[in-house]
């Protein structure tokens, strides 16, 4: 019978929604246990949030000063120690999980599965590769732990109506000091919803033309209560921060509404938005590949159309309809 250990992603205060998606993935093959491990300097608040996830059978708090900031080299040996007795060790396919889980797998002497999008059983999984141009079905051997990352865009977050017991664990493994956290620089957000979990996202591409013009994107996002995203071209050109990049090598997202403005739609971008509910493309180039996947396309000059759209939607929000 499968027993799953999930590594919680958090910032020391709040549990990241990616963890609830890992729980949903695990629950889909009905294992006998879904335990969530919280590595922190003081994991009380995060553990309580994890314990509330429907489907979780237990939360294991590993409090240690070295766990103040998540470092893969520090967390991996602790997870390897904790993984005894589990058949599966899962993390999210966010930069946190992608950094960490291969290191865990290699310490355990096993391979790792990236980006699980569907679990046909506890040992049979689907995952995308070639920038989402193909889906692979693979079977993992049952005689060794399955270490994997879960493609968060493929799963709904587990509800928070649960009440799993919380326990404390002390790790015996000696922790490395060769890797040290310095700081996190974050300049985007502006009080907007988180790109990875937002139900609405407005993204800008090269067509936006400059970082000043990117305000057009931000105003439309604000009129919709949406998060802001960007194509790789826009990030490379310095119009937007790296944490806003959507696509194969950026964030894979699944909002209910995705509005792409001035984005031509390279395959690397499309792979990041395939699971969106409704995709809208606004571009003056009617040949832009994004129109091939868009549910609604508008061929127009973005500098006229986007402010007009923001105005129309803002009015709607003000009138409460």
């Amino acid at each position: 019978m499968a027993r799953v250990l999930i590594v919680a992603e958090h910032d020391g205060r709040a549990l990241n929604a990616s963890t609830a998606k890992c729980v949903s993935c695990a629950a889909s093959f009905a294992p006998s246990a879904i335990d969530i491990a919280v590595f922190a300097s003081d994991g009380g608040a995060v553990a309580a949030q994890a314990a509330a996830l429907e489907g979780a059978t237990g939360v294991i708090r590993v409090d240690h000063p070295a766990n103040e900031n998540a470092l893969a080299a520090v967390a991996a040996p602790q997870i390897a120690e904790l993984s005894a007795g589990y058949t599966h060790v899962f993390g999210p396919s966010t930069t946190f999980g992608k950094d960490l889980m291969p290191r865990v797998a290699a310490l355990l002497g096993v391979g790792q599965l990236s980006d699980i999008m569907n679990a046909e059983s506890a040992w049979r999984f689907k995952r995308p590769f070639y920038a989402g141009n193909a889906i692979l079905t693979v079977e993992a051997p049952e005689d060794r732990p399955v270490v994997a990352t879960v493609r968060t865009a493929s799963y709904q977050a587990a509800e928070d109506s649960g009440n799993a017991p919380i326990s404390q664990r002390t790790i015996e493994t000696e922790l490395p000091t060769h890797t040290r956290y310095v700081e996190l620089r974050s300049d985007s957000g502006g009080g907007r919803p988180d790109l990875q979990t937002a139900s609405r996202v407005v993204s800008g591409g090269r067509g936006v033309g400059s970082s000043e013009n990117f305000q057009i994107i931000e105003r439309l996002a604000d009129a919709l209560g949406a998060a802001v995203g960007a194509s790789r071209a826009a990030v490379d050109a310095g119009y937007a921060g790296n944490d806003l990049q959507v696509g194969q090598t950026g964030k894979i997202i699944a909002p209910d509404l995705y509005i792409a403005v001035g984005i031509s739609g390279a395959i690397q971008h499309l792979t990041g938005i395939k699971d969106a509910g409704v995709i809208v493309a606004i571009n003056k180039d009617s040949e832009a590949p994004l129109f091939e996947v868009a549910d609604i396309g508008l061929v127009a000059d973005l500098f006229a159309a986007v402010p007009e759209l923001a105005e129309a939607l803002g009015e709607q929000a003000r009138s409460g309809s």
Binding site: D11, T94, T95, L184, R185, S186, N242
Partner: peptide, 11 residues
């Protein structure tokens, strides 16, 4: 380049 922005580490 991490999801939350830019993280600096020393190794």
């Amino acid at each position: 380049e991490v999801d939350a922005g830019l993280e600096v580490i020393e190794v």
